[in-house]
């Protein structure tokens, strides 16, 4: 199975049945990142914004794994595993923060937190 995927990924010539190449992975990654970014910029709900950042995270992870496959080494995958672990911890923290922020203002609107205005 792995060998099959490897051959697909490495094949330079697309077959009749459209095979998933690096290009496809990167497209997916870019789309996910774009969705995440747009979501982050447009939504005001803290939880949604947080989810969007996670989305961007994972997009980057996909790109890393794809490149890792492409270059036939495991560096990118190892890296992504670390990123995922840390992202999990960070998610716990971030959600806790969101809960605290909510408790103080009874709203999830990011717009109310603007005291750092110069």
């Amino acid at each position: 199975m792995i060998d099959a995927v490897l051959t697909i990924a490495q094949s330079q010539t697309p077959g009749p049945m459209a095979q998933a190449t690096l290009f496809h992975y990167l497209i997916v990654s870019a789309l996910m990142f774009g969705i995440g970014l747009i979501g982050f910029l447009t939504r005001r709900n803290l939880i949604i914004m947080f989810l969007c950042t996670e989305l961007m995270f994972q997009a980057a992870g996909i790109a890393l794994i794809a490149f890792s496959r492409f270059h036939l080494n495991h560096t990118g995958e190892t890296f992504v595993i670390f990123v995922l672990t840390i992202a999990a911890a960070e998610a716990a923290l971030a959600l806790a923060l969101v809960v605290l922020l909510f408790r103080r203002r009874e709203t999830l609107d990011a717009g109310v937190w603007s005291q750092l205005r110069g």
């Binding site: 914004m49 937190w113 603007s114 005291q115 750092l116 205005r117 110069g118």
Partner: peptide, 18 residues
């Protein structure tokens, strides 16, 4: 002058960064 850039609005910072 520079202080005016600091609006405190999270989305603005995000847009600028993007």
């Amino acid at each position: 002058l520079a202080r005016k850039q600091q609006t405190g609005v999270l989305h603005e910072y995000a847009i600028r960064m993007a």
